[in-house]
């Protein structure tokens, strides 16, 4: 009676892939036009929230890589945001200010953490997997809370923005914004390649029917663990951007609520579509901003929205759009 994790139709075929790239291209054009628009309106606030949206879009897309294509509901992905953010803080305190090195550092730590925790979590299924990833995320959270050298609970202010290969293009908000956009675009293309590759086909196949894949000669674990590590590494890039945007890092980046929000973004935009979660990140953050203007108790409305969405629109926003013929339905 219990269905498995909701899964979108596979997108391993070429036509669906092209459609997705087109949708993403449109999104990217919109993103690229935002800063000129903001400066025309003389409201730099849009660029700030835009940067946050881009960062979360990277994280949501990375989560979608395993959630959408592998049916792995990781509830601990905020940990990787934290690794990215703290990589900036810790490395810069040792004088390593270049974003390239910071991303590298974030990825190494994330890969190790994902390798160890993934190896344990992936031996389990269903609610177990969700709870265990959640617990490991919390473990990372507590680690940084007790890391008093970097402010512990209170967080840690960064004294400067990162450089990029020696240049200081991140010093302007616009520079950071376009850097984030560039990273998102590059990582989107990377993820697209991955899901359409040999590896992607095997990984998606395991989501479809793991026993069948074993019966033709694949050991699911190796592929799932690899994807888990890739997803963690990509997510950490988002943390590097967030730290630069806020000039501040704190364990709050990695609370389990943040992990939940990442899942919300993926589902809002459409599971297993890569481009969808990018839109989902924008939708979720804008909704939060908008509700935040209405009332200080905006989580109440956001929570209501979530519950109602699940109860009445099982397939998320995409489901609603399809219902009214706005988006392309299942082929």
């Amino acid at each position: 009676m219990m269905s498995d994790v909701t899964t979108a139709p596979t997108a391993t075929r070429a036509p669906a892939l092209a459609g997705r790239v087109k949708a993403a291209a449109l999104l990217f054009v919109l993103f690229a036009l935002l800063p000129p628009l903001a400066s025309a309106l003389n409201d730099p606030f849009y660029v700030l929230i835009g940067t946050r949206i881009l960062a979360y879009a990277i994280a949501a897309m990375a989560l979608d890589l395993i959630l959408g294509y592998g049916a792995l509901v990781s509830f601990g992905h905020a940990a990787y945001l934290g690794f990215g953010a703290y990589a900036v803080a810790i490395l810069s305190s040792y004088g390593i200010n270049d974003m390239v090195l910071q991303i590298l550092g974030a990825m190494v730590v994330s890969a190790l953490f994902a390798l160890v925790t993934g190896a344990i979590s992936l031996r389990t299924r269903g609610v177990y997997f969700i709870m265990i990833t959640l617990a490991f995320g919390q473990m990372a959270f507590f680690f940084f809370i007790s890391l008093s050298a970097y402010g512990g609970d209170d967080g840690y202010s960064l004294s400067q923005k990162s450089t990029v290969l020696g240049t200081d293009i991140l010093h302007s908000d616009y520079g950071l914004y376009y850097m984030a956009l560039g990273l998102l675009a590059a990582l989107f293309l990377l993820c697209n390649r991955i899901v359409g590759s040999r590896f992607g086909r095997v990984f998606t196949g395991i989501r479809e029917n793991a026993t069948r894949m074993e019966a033709v000669g694949y050991s699911p674990f190796r592929y799932q663990l690899t994807a888990f590590v890739i997803s963690g590494c990509i997510t950490s890039v988002a943390g590097v951007i967030l730290a630069n945007q806020a000039q501040f890092v704190s364990p709050a980046f990695m609370s389990w609520h943040r992990s939940g929000e990442l899942i919300v973004m993926v589902v809002l935009g459409g599971v297993g579509t890569l481009a969808g979660p990018i839109a989902g990140a924008a939708a979720a953050l804008l909704l939060e901003e908008w509700l935040g203007v209405l009332t200080e108790h905006w989580p109440l409305l956001f929570g209501l929205f979530l519950v109602l969405m699940v109860l009445f629109s099982p397939r998320g926003i995409t489901g609603v759009l399809e219902k009214y013929g706005i988006a392309r339905g299942k082929e």
């Binding site: 009676m1 219990m2 269905s3 498995d4 994790v5 909701t6 959630l67 509901v73 509830f75 269903g126 609610v127 969700i130 939940g260 899942i263 919300v264 589902v267 599971v271 108790h297 989580p299 109440l300 956001f302 929570g303 209501l304 929205f305 979530l306 519950v307 969405m309 699940v310 109860l311 099982p314």
Partner: peptide, 27 residues
């Protein structure tokens, strides 16, 4: 309404409940 649904739906809906109840308590 969640028993027959996917774990993902359950996560989302009960996450929503956490937000709702937290705010209601605060209010």
């Amino acid at each position: 309404r969640l028993y027959a649904r996917s774990h993902l739906d359950q996560v989302l809906a009960t996450f929503g409940l956490v937000m709702i109840i937290n705010e209601l308590v605060e209010i």
